[in-house]
Design a protein around this nucleic acid. Sequence first.
RNA 1: GGUGUCGUAGCUCAGUAGGUCAGAGCACUGCCCUGUCAAGGCAGAGGCCGCGGGUUCGAGCCCCGCCGGCGCCGCCA
Length: 618
Amino acid sequence: MIREDGAIREDGAIRENGAIRENAIRTHEAGSLRARDAGTAVTLAGWVARRRDHGGVTFIDLRDASGVVQIVLRESEQAHALRNEYCVRVTGEVGRRPAGNENPELPTGEVEVVVTGLDVLSEAEALPLPIDDQVEAGDDIRLRYRYLDLRRSGPAKALRLRSRANQIAREVLHARNFNEIETPTLTRSTPEGARDFLVPVRLQPGTWYALPQSPQLFKQLLMVAGMERYYQIARCYRDEDFRADRQPEFTQLDIEMSFVTQDDVIELAEAIVAALWGELADAEVSLPIPRLTWHEAMARYGSDKPDLRYGVELVDLTSYLHGTDFRVFSAAIMAGGYVGAVVMPGGAVQTRKELDAWQEWAKARGAKGLAYVVLDAETGEARGPVAKNLSAEHLAGLGDTVGAKPGDAVFFAASQNRREAQELLGAARIEIAKRAGLMDEDAWAFCWVVDAPMFERDTVLPDGTGEGWTAVHHPFTSPTAEWMDSFETAPGDALAYAYDIVCNGNEIGGGSIRIHRGDLQRRVFDLLGITPEEAQDKFGFLLEAFKYGPPPHGGIAFGWDRVCMLLSGADSIREVIAFPKTRGGLDPLTGAPTPITPQQRLEAGVDAKPKAPGESAS
RNA sequence: GGUGUCGUAGCUCAGUAGGUCAGAGCACUGCCCUGUCAAGGCAGAGGCCGCGGGUUCGAGCCCCGCCGGCGCCGCCA
């Protein structure tokens, strides 16, 4: 159990019978001391968190991993020489503080240690960043001196929480007979669709390892191997641009099971989520977590990872506005597209400038604009540039149809590409919630998004069509039972046994039931335009494995950094990574990445030409 | 690749529409101080105002380019 004060942990120097190990550096942890310890002789070790030097008496806040305790030095020459973050060892006696001097802010506030001996274990230079929970330093300086940043209680707490999260997940999984199995990080490209990080291979000049984007193929091989229940806290690598919730190397809680259906995987995932949030967020997750289909999520929220902490659902107006003269809408409707709306409660009070800002906001997202109508707070009359383009009939029923009241604003999106318009409204929905303050910051809203499409167009033309198809999840994802025999007839409509778990608008995990039959896999490859030769070249080893009695299997992977970020209340996964990288892919601490020497370049074989396939590799 | 925003002392920041504008708090150095808890007081040191160019009589402030941090779009489950 994580505690604010970390008080209940026993120091390693103390044996079970209470005896102190000989030569121990310390006898107690600073944050563990309480009134009951008054009169006890203790030796502590830690850092000078703060000093208050009154001349004849000096107070030091001594900090170790367990917390802080006040130590008192009287008539001490040494005391005046102490500086922040000196590492010290003190011997003394725990005493109750004089009446009236207790500090109720501190768990150790009833006591103090009156020092009889002080050793400076090591000194500290003037600090490049203050070890102070009140002062928030810039990201670059924090990362450059991450080891000092982590001395602060907030950042330290985030890493300790992550450690406990790992432990909780392992407890749930081991209770269910899962095996923790490691897989290679020097391997070949996996079919996740991102760019690979590549590693030159000295022993085979001109050839390269790829760092895994996930252990996907290996975990499926482990199912063929009969392990049946696998998990791993796995480092994954994807060479794409950074975000607040994306780093080039990140961690998944990766899980795969044999002889299971989608419901089995979901049940397990829910058990893990409930255990994590129950302990670390003090939140009871009511199970089962609600499910909505991918199409439902898009229709109601304009997102495949909807934030359900607030309403503000989209309304499909395609049929309501059928026959409109307004070109922007009619063009979309005639082309078989979509017109929809989302309501901003109280949005009518926005100034012209604020409403114009929405246009800029929409353009920044690649849209042409964001049509709107405001309903007068007094009369309910529809106003705004779009209003005069709509018929009196359409305007009259608009409020009721979209669920808007006088004083609200209604935003519209229209496109012949349904998904594009829905996504614009979905983004507007999030922005509305932010600007209107509709988000309950303390709420946890989970949902599953199931029945995802199997395929999407690889190149999307303005009308939503395209040339070929690409797998939405990955090419080993099974179609649902209904589409098993027919996905080729309407690839754009085919659904997959693919599921994502979403928390407050963050995708925290996703998985699928895999294809385990060679014939079905062949048909999927055919549709994706992957020739037998290509398949053999890229994942021949998997297909070969599937010749030998592969079990039905499926799994899920949690974005572990995101899970820990949410649990710790952070707004970036950097907060739950010990040594994260900056947006530019640099590590300000080590200075990585660095150029290599000509010698390294030569040895690594970076410029070597690979041997032709026929030649011997050795 | 696109875009927004930030960059002033070791740290956090203030510097009003170009004209005593090189400033504050903390940290640092020295001194004083026996009950503080973000201790207090006195004194001091510390800055190519991110870099380069331009406009101007004059630029921390305006313009252009570059570099770096962060956010977003693209990309990426």
